[in-house]
């Protein structure tokens, strides 16, 4: 494992911790999209089915379990915690997730490495992850003012993807015969989804002010 991959994973983990801490400390999930969090849970469940039949490393297994547990913890807070769930912007978080899930599933059936249940579900999880942030970005656009923690959460999620891109370039030049087109193309799309957000995030940071999205 190279340094870019490790940095990517750690940024991903940190983004989730930041979100969980925000929810726990402020007892509020205002500005957080439950749809996006549920999509991530679907992504992790369909991708990490290999926990049952393949072992790569202790690091790999532990990280997968952490991602699964934290995803369901966040959903639990937003749906069941009696204080936190009242702060959820249900009326604003109206993205139709089936418009993401169905096309990703069809694409996974058409473009995959192998026509098996686990391989198609794994491919589906790769496609779905690329667009899972969209409900969150739409919610952000609607509520306009972005609180610092939510902004940092999304910024770290985007950074994690950017670090994975660098990791793939590094692996391409250092590992003989290493290529994974499905992951590369989806990952590039996923990183591009964040570009607009990055622009406004960096602008707010440079001007030392609270982040605002244009109407």
């Amino acid at each position: 494992m190279n340094i870019f991959r490790l940095a990517g994973d750690m940024t991903h983990l940190l983004s989730i911790i930041v979100l969980l801490l925000k929810i726990q400390a402020t007892k509020s999930c205002a500005g957080v999209s439950l749809k996006t969090q549920e999509l991530y849970a679907v992504v992790f469940v369909t991708r990490y089915l290999d926990l049952f039949y393949s072992f790569i490393s202790l690091y790999n297994t532990v990280m997968k379990i952490i991602f699964l547990l934290t995803a369901f913890t966040i959903i639990w807070y937003m749906r069941k915690h009696k204080v936190v769930c009242q702060t959820y912007d249900k009326e604003q978080d109206t993205f139709r997730v089936l418009f993401l899930i169905v096309p990703c599933f069809v694409l996974a059936l058409l473009v995959n490495h192998e026509m098996s249940v686990t391989e198609v579900l794994w491919t589906f999880s790769i496609y779905l992850e690329a667009v899972a942030i969209l409900p969150q970005l739409v919610l952000l656009q609607r509520t306009k003012n972005v609180d610092n923690l939510t902004g940092n959460y999304i910024f770290m999620l985007g950074s994690y993807r950017a670090l994975y891109l660098v990791n793939w370039v590094y692996r391409y030049f250092t590992e003989l015969g290493y290529r994974q087109w499905i992951v590369w193309v989806s990952g590039t799309v996923q990183t591009c989804v964040y570009l607009d957000f990055f622009y406004y995030y960096v602008q707010a940071w440079r001007n030392n002010e609270r982040m605002k999205l244009p109407g």
């Binding site: 994973d9 290999d50 790569i56 490393s57 790999n60 997968k64 995959n112 490495h113 192998e114």
Partner: peptide
């Protein structure tokens, strides 16, 4: 051809 490579990334 398309070979499923080892899924060592998260």
């Amino acid at each position: 051809g398309a070979q499923p490579c080892e899924k060592d990334e998260l």
